[in-house]
Design a protein around this nucleic acid. Structure first.
Length: 284
DNA sequence: AGGCAGGCTTTTA
DNA sequence: TAAAAGCCTGCC
């Protein structure tokens, strides 16, 4: 079907944003993404036009919600005054097209446990291995195989050597613990939907291997708490450099998480480009 | 009690 | 070789 999202939908930027790890740009125009046991191809056919290989029914029941199309990201970006906060205004402008996806809570939790102390290509690799190891093989509409994200039981029952083969390193025990807790029902990722940000944070950080940063990512990307503000090494640097007097958290509520995402993408890309061009780095 | 150093698997640049 | 969407443990 034909999809005309408006300005704020850019598969390349979302793929590169670090919030999801199962999107892939196959070419400049074609994006392949996996969610909810399905695989979708989004092919750009114009400035604001895509061809999606799904029906209208599937789009409205699955993808529309996943893409968070109800939210007005242009309005969220528009709240930033370019005179008062030129840095964030620039980050927002550069990140136009990024949305905060409504990911599956369990998948988001496991993904961000895996993410700790690693860069994005390495995270993608481990998640893909985990899906091949414990997920279900299916065929997309182009006849290519893909693997669903495994449920708690599948990961919980995976033999140690198979889990280790996902190259999780010391995180294997963390992934196992979360999967076992979810499989046994002592921890219910879906039940967090009803809890407050603070309650969800408290419950998440009780899990072995889940600290404030990973729990923050789970809140923002798995529970869609748009004000959750996970602080990683990039955000720490960005805030230290751009906001020496402090970041105006209250002023930007309740969308701090969205701004965090724009800042993350902008600062990380900017630094990466700068390094490869100039070769010079500023050590801390 | 609460803060801090060291260690941890593996990949990436 | 250092750094990477960090967290746990042990020491003070």
């Amino acid at each position: 079907m034909r999809f005309t999202p408006g300005d704020d939908f850019d598969p390349a930027r979302i793929t590169d944003s670090g919030q999801c790890f199962r999107w892939k740009m196959l070419s400049e125009d074609t994006c392949r993404l996996i969610h909810a046991g399905r695989c979708l191809y989004a092919v750009r056919t114009g400035i604001d036009e895509f061809e999606l290989d799904c029906s209208e029914e599937e789009f409205s029941s699955i993808w529309s919600g996943y893409f968070d199309l109800e939210e007005d990201y242009a309005a969220i970006r528009g709240r930033i005054d370019p005179v008062k906060d030129p840095f964030l205004a620039k980050a927002c402008a550069e990140g136009k097209g990024i949305r905060i996806l409504r990911q599956d809570p369990f998948e988001a939790l496991i993904s961000f446990i895996i993410s700790q102390n690693r860069n994005i290509p390495a995270i993608r690799n481990s998640i893909e291995l985990l899906c091949r190891m414990a997920g279900e093989e299916r065929t997309d509409k182009r006849g290519e195989p893909f693997y669903t994200f495994p449920g708690p039981e599948s990961i919980a029952s995976l033999p140690d050597e198979r889990l280790a083969a996902c190259r999780l390193g010391y995180r294997a025990g963390y992934v196992r613990a979360a999967a076992v807790a979810a499989a046994k029902g002592t921890f219910d990722p879906d039940a967090l939907e009803k809890k407050s940000d603070e309650e969800a944070m408290t419950e998440l950080t009780k899990l072995y291997g889940v600290g404030v940063k990973v729990a923050g990512c789970m809140l923002l990307f798995g529970l869609h708490r748009l004000n959750a503000f996970p602080v990683d090494v990039w955000i720490r640097r960005a805030i230290g450099t751009e906001y020496p007097a402090g970041y105006p958290m209250e002023e930007y509520a309740p969308y701090n998480g969205v701004y965090q995402q724009y800042m993350f993408a902008y600062y990380r890309n900017g630094k990466t480009k700068h390094r490869t061009c100039s070769g010079g780095t500023d050590h801390v």
